[in-house]
Design a protein around this nucleic acid. Structure first.
Length: 606
RNA sequence: GGCUCCGUAGCUUAAUUGAAUAGAGCAUCUGACUACGGAUCAGAAGGUUCCAGGUUUGAGUCCUGGCGGAGUCACCA
């Protein structure tokens, strides 16, 4: 069903169809009404033309139209070998040599399906922001989805010919950061990651939890003593006042506070770095909110001066978005301080000045849909030149079987723990299968890591980003069926064949094969391979790694069927054997390249 | 309550701007190892695509109205 464009044949046929219909009916049809798709498996053919859109102008039955167009195409285009008609569908079979040519032209291209990085210095980049963690808590399952998505989308956009800059905007300041600082200052007794034997982000997270539980106790007793609501009790609780005081002191650059802040954040970064490295994630640039939180104020004040915004009696500044059917949105408080939106206005401008991007993609959960809607509209209102470049890549929540992760209920799935669990499962499964008898310790570790991350990444990326997804921690992620390890296994099996064949045989200078000897399975596989470039383009347009994942899964299934039915190296006819070897090679390249777009490594043996 | 998104086999999911008999995996059952690697392959069973209307030659997809779920509607970030 997927569209595929193979050496321009699709275009050639579409153009021919247009001229045939014009000749017959005298009417010109728009190109987008010519629907060519991959022929479904249960029908004979390679490409299918849907003729329903033309039956009215041709004034004949769908079958007649299809037959007429089919005959004309067979005459006009030499690559069209045969055609058949089912209802209103015209199935075209291409000459087999078309597929052989395709294989021969691409077999040695290691970057098959990937566009080369644009050398053009004037090309405007796409900025992809993702991850954007808070420095008061360790990373969890939700962050994993965000990181994997962002990293993969960046790779896919590159493969589609874009220049890409990956950025991370770290939320390293604010009241929530002060909470963990305060708890550490009060209860920590100088504890450090070293003394506690913990990763820094975990230690800081523990103090955040300590703050919350101490606060809850205070709130409970205040509510009992004064009979006030929980909200009110929270606001008046001494710990809350202290935290706010700490934030004030931080903003005033109180040296003592800044020192604690720097120390604790450094611990967190050390922890994050380990987690990122394990995940295989990196960035071109890291922004810190402590540097950017004051940005945006000037833009807002300027907008006020130009009367694009309005000031209320108390001095607060608002954007009226009634023209976009949205409410008024606060941009500056009465005391002149900023809100989150103000800061995002500032960082958008900063990013624009830093990179002059063609597009700015924000990988952020769908809980912030409204926020980004408003951000874009405020920027339009302010007539910022980059307003239209803003693109929110909104993804669904990761849910547990009993609903959302809740830190209060201790149901948060920690990123490090999850990766360790996956590693353990990979180790156990692999050892049970007895696959690593001849591996040394570091090779084993490397392999288990690849499999573990392959399973986890594929699991999370194969689902359409915009959909919520379910993660059941009790059922560990599968290694069979539609999974990362299945694809890795397919790759490893081909790698084994290629090793056995040897480099000399792989470097073939000539392919001597009569195309008539190609079988249906091989052609199905070649057809699949030929669609890779188009899939990359579609995945880039949709910012959807899931499309790559689904593609490479299909490809592996196709190859495994071929592999089961036919032999590559044991095939007695050398010409056929050589040809199948090239087919296997191009398949392995395509698997490797696809998986790289998902941020997944493939092992040569497993 | 307003707005936004989602609802497909028991479970997890696929289906380019509308297109043929809704496609997979897991789980269940049955087969295939004297092997280019069985983490594989073949087969069986499993569906009123939440419901009701509508548009269309054609609807899982578009429109309207319900039902169910999630998110959001902060001088939080």
């Amino acid at each position: 069903m997927r569209k595929f464009d193979f050496m321009g044949i699709e275009k050639k046929i579409a153009a021919a169809v247009a001229s045939i219909i014009e000749n017959e009916s005298g009417q010109v049809i728009p190109a987008d009404r010519i629907v060519l798709q991959k022929t479904r498996k249960d029908f004979e053919g390679d490409l299918t033309l849907v003729v329903f859109p033309f039956v009215k102008m041709l004034r004949r039955s769908p079958e007649h139209c299809a037959d007429m167009i089919g005959k004309a195409l067979a005459e006009k285009i030499e690559e069209v070998a045969a055609h058949n008609v089912v209802k209103g569908f015209l199935n075209l079979s291409l000459e087999k040599y078309v597929w052989l040519d395709f294989l021969w032209k691409n077999a040695n291209n290691e970057r098959f399906g990937l566009q080369n990085p644009a050398a053009d210095d004037d090309l405007k980049p796409v900025v992809v922001e993702f991850s954007s963690p808070n420095t008061n808590k360790p990373l969890h399952l939700g962050h994993i989805r965000n990181n994997l998505l962002g990293f993969s989308v960046a790779r896919i956009l590159e493969a589609a010919g874009n220049k890409v800059v990956s950025v991370n905007l770290v939320n390293d300041r604010g009241i929530h950061i002060c909470k963990s600082m305060l708890a550490w200052m009060k209860f920590g007794q100088g504890e450090t990651p070293q003394s506690a034997g913990k990763k820094g982000d975990k230690l800081v997270g523990d103090y955040y939890v300590k703050f919350e539980s101490a606060l809850r106790k205070q709130v409970a007793s205040i509510m009992e003593e004064k009979g006030v609501s929980e909200d009110e009790a929270r606001k008046s609780a001494p710990l809350m006042m202290e935290a706010q005081n700490l934030l004030r002191r931080w903003e005033e650059r109180d040296p003592e506070v800044v020192k604690v802040w720097e120390t604790m954040n450094a611990w967190v970064y050390e922890g994050f770095d380990q987690t990122y490295e394990r995940m295989g994630i990196s960035f071109d640039k890291i922004y810190y909110e402590s540097d950017t939180y004051l940005l945006g104020r000037d833009i807002v004040l300027d907008g006020l001066k130009k009367e694009k915004l309005l000031k209320k009696e108390d001095g607060s500044v608002w954007a009226d978005l009634a023209e976009h059917k949205l409410d008024e949105k606060l941009l500056l408080r009465a005391d002149g301080t900023s809100v989150y939106m103000t800061q995002d206005i500032g960082t958008a401008r900063l990013r624009y000045e830093d990179f002059c991007p063609e597009r700015m993609i924000y990988v952020v959960g769908n809980e912030q849909n409204y926020h980004f809607d408003v951000l874009k509209k405020v920027l339009i209102k302010l007539e910022e030149p980059y307003a239209d470049a803003i693109h929110h890549l909104s993804y669904g929540m990761v849910e547990l079987p009993d609903g959302r992760m809740k830190s209060r209920e201790g149901t948060v799935v920690d990123a490090d723990d999850l990766m360790s669990d996956m590693f353990e499962t990979a180790r156990k499964t692999t050892e049970e299968l007895g696959k690593t008898a001849d591996f040394n310790e570091s090779e084993k570790k490397d392999l288990y890591h690849k499999i573990a991350m392959g399973a986890l990444k594929y699991f999370m990326l194969k689902v359409d980003p915009k959909k919520n997804m379910l993660f059941n921690p009790d059922e560990s992620i599968d290694f069979n069926g539609n999974t990362g390890p299945f694809i890795q296994y397919t790759y490893a099996r081909i790698a084994s064949i290629l090793r056995k064949a040897g480099e000399d045989r792989l470097k073939l200078s000539e392919l001597k094969l009569d195309a008539s000897r190609m079988n249906a399975k091989e052609i199905a596989l070649l057809k699949n391979l030929s669609g890779f470039g188009a899939v990359v383009a579609e995945a880039a347009a949709a910012c959807s790694p899931a499309q790559i994942a689904n593609y490479v899964y299909e490809l592996c299934k196709e190859f495994n069927q071929f592999y089961h039915e036919y032999s590559v190296l044991n095939e007695p006819d050398r010409a056929v054997s050589d040809y199948r070897l090239q087919l296997a090679k191009l398949t392995s390249t395509t698997i490797k390249n696809s998986m790289a777009l998902l941020g997944i490594d493939v092992p040569e043996k497993m």
